[in-house]
Amino acid sequence: MTTHNTPPPASAAPAVRAEGLVKSFAGHRAVDGIDLRVRTGEIYGVLGPNGAGKTTMLRMLATLLAIDGGRAEIFGVDVASRPHAVRQLLGVTGQYASVDEDLTAAENLRLFGRLQGLSSSAARRRATHLLDQFGLEEAAHKTINQFSGGMRRRLDLAASLITRPPLIFLDEPTTGLDPRTRGQMWDTIRELVVEGCTVLLTTQYLDEADQLADRIAVIDQGRKVAEDTPDGLKNAVGSSTLQLVLEDSARLHEARAALRGTASEEPVLTPEHGRLNLPIEHGDQATDVLMTLRNAEISIASVSVRKPTLDEVFLALTGHDSHTKPASDHHEANEHATEAAR
């Protein structure tokens, strides 16, 4: 979905404000009282497994699904009562490219431009610019059925930017892409923010949320279970781990004994790598550990600090990993299938 290039209202309102959003299918709440506040100019990540309610929530905010409960605003404009005004502020890119298979890339973008009210010449200029920006200029005259998955995804994102909306919704934009193409998409998303866009991104990829998002909402079974910066979420789960590799692996047990009075927890040994792992709460504790080993004349080959991963965060918050869809939650998947069949 793309829209006319209307600037956001001149106000201090956040890009997205949602309070108590609810959406039900067959008596089941796919979205169950979610609150969101997305600041202008940030990348806000919504992280959760398939069926968590991410896409349903996004479709309500984009006026594509009716809101059953709660309320939402886009730049201060009420989603339910002023849907047309909201659509003028949005660009939406879904998980599957919404393009015509029998048209070329250039023809698709020109068509989107004309549908959004651009003149023929303006639509042509905009299409040329976007094809160049997204590295598709050499494929401009190929039909979409010749495109790879990554090329289709880039074209779909280009189509959502025909009129440069101030807010972009990206619904799992890198699903199914290879690592290289995913990295290219990440760079493009960062560039959008530098150019003045606000991005609301849904994803089930922990590394994607970690790499891109300024703040992350963790969604599970229709509810928001946590919200913070990536580092804030990691720090809330537990301590970092100091990983030490000794020059002489035979001294591992001696090192563990020396650290018993310094560390709050017993070091965990990995004898096959000559390594010991030690939970630490702050930098001073790491310094104390290193000084203790130095005083014991135990030489260290390497030292590193590992923070908790977002996968560990998700497991701690929900009791299952980020790729596991609860067995009882098929409603959102059914809703997607219904939409795809229309």
Rank of each mutant, 00 (worst) to 15 (best):
T6C: 06
P7H: 13
A15Y: 10
R17W: 12
E19Q: 15
H28E: 02
R37Y: 07
T40N: 05
G48S: 05
G51H: 13
G53V: 00
T55Q: 14
T56M: 12
L58T: 01
L64M: 12
G69I: 08
A72H: 11
A72C: 05
G76M: 09
H84P: 00
A85L: 07
R87Q: 09
T93N: 11
Q95M: 07
Q95N: 03
Q95V: 10
D100G: 00
T104P: 09
A106E: 12
L109P: 02
L109F: 11
G113D: 09
L118C: 00
L118T: 02
L130E: 05
Q133C: 05
F134V: 01
E138K: 03
A139I: 00
G149Y: 11
R153C: 06
D156G: 10
A158I: 00
L161M: 15
T163E: 08
R164D: 13
P173H: 06
T174N: 09
T175R: 14
R180K: 15
T181A: 13
D187Q: 11
D187F: 01
T188Y: 13
E191G: 06
L192Q: 12
L192H: 10
L192V: 07
G196V: 08
T202L: 06
T202K: 13
Q204F: 07
Y205M: 07
Y205F: 11
E208I: 04
E208N: 09
E208W: 05
E208C: 07
A209I: 03
D210T: 06
D214R: 01
Q221W: 04
G222K: 05
G222A: 04
G222I: 10
R223M: 08
V225I: 09
A226W: 03
P230M: 03
P230H: 08
G232E: 13
G238Y: 12
G238A: 04
T241S: 12
T241M: 04
V245F: 02
E247K: 09
R256S: 14
R256N: 11
A257S: 15
A258K: 15
L259P: 08
L259F: 14
T262N: 06
P267C: 06
V268G: 01
V268P: 00
L269I: 01
T270A: 08
P271R: 15
G274Y: 04
E281K: 10
E281W: 03
H282R: 13
A286D: 13
D288Y: 04
D288S: 03
D288W: 02
V289A: 08
M291A: 14
M291G: 03
A296M: 04
A296H: 15
I300L: 14
V303C: 11
V305E: 11
T309M: 03
L310A: 00
D311E: 11
D311V: 04
E312F: 04
V313K: 05
G319W: 06
H320E: 10
D321P: 12
H323W: 13
S328T: 14
S328E: 09
H330T: 06
T338E: 14
R342Y: 14
